[in-house]
């Protein structure tokens, strides 16, 4: 357990350090959200209606942007080989890495989202709910992305291929995340069902993704 904790803290420190990418992802999130009013026009009523969708899309793209380097960095400097030689299972190590990525990249987005919701004219009362859906749903994005990151390391290709492989799998997360956020703002539908399904997606992907990612790395580096 202490080895996993050490790995978690190492990844966290590397991500937060200058050039680690965590701050850049938050900046990217800010810019994507700021671009939308220029594309759809400054109509505040429209922006408040599509606000949750914009925030979710921004979070999806921002977390995807940094996933590319999640395992690739370790593969390049050889620490991935060391990880595979340690007695701890590769699945657990990858899960710890994904958690560190979530803490360094997605948690800032969750904290930032109420501020950006303000820019999109989302009701003040709905902001905690949007932040809550992002907090519950972004782990699923990170874990699904972990599979893509492992595949792109095994293929020794990254970038756009990762997005092509990963994005179709994130559709359910997007659906339930936006639905839960909208339920608070406009919808007659209750908040509970989509939110609990969102939590279920996060938990299920936390189980499946490390196994698939570890399999991809083992088969890729053979």
């Amino acid at each position: 357990m202490s080895a996993l904790a050490a790995l978690y803290w190492r990844d966290l420190r590397l991500a937060v350090r200058a050039g680690g990418g965590a701050a850049i992802a938050a900046l990217f999130f800010l810019i994507v959200v700021a671009l939308v009013p220029f594309a759809v026009g400054p109509d505040l009523a429209l922006l408040s209606r599509i606000g949750p969708a914009i925030l979710w899309l921004g979070a999806l793209l921002a977390s995807l942007l940094t996933l590319d380097r999640l395992i690739a960095v370790d593969a390049e400097d050889g620490s991935l080989d060391l990880l595979m030689m340690t007695p701890m299972p590769l699945e657990a190590a990858l899960a710890a890495k994904a958690l560190a990525h979530w803490t360094s990249t997605c948690l800032p987005l969750v904290i930032l989202s109420p501020v950006l919701a303000l820019l999109l004219n989302v009701e003040f009362s709905a902001m905690p709910a949007i932040a809550l859906t992002l907090a519950a749903g972004t782990p699923a994005l990170t874990f699904i992305g972990l599979i893509g990151a492992a595949l792109s390391v095994a293929l020794r290709r990254g970038g756009v291929l990762l997005a092509v492989l990963v994005l179709p799998f994130t559709i359910p997360v997007l659906i339930f995340g936006v639905a839960a956020a909208n339920a608070v703002i406009v919808g007659p539908a209750p908040f509970g069902p989509p939110f609990t399904i969102l939590c279920a997606l996060s938990l299920a992907s936390a189980v499946i993704a490390p196994v698939a990612a570890a399999a991809a790395i083992r088969h890729g580096l053979e």
């Binding site: 599979i147 595949l151 095994a154 293929l155 499946i208 698939a212 399999a215 088969h219």
Partner: peptide
């Protein structure tokens, strides 16, 4: 290797 990686993606 492509086959094994694609197999993982297919199963996911």
């Amino acid at each position: 290797r492509a086959a094994r990686l694609a197999a993982i993606l297919t199963l996911v």
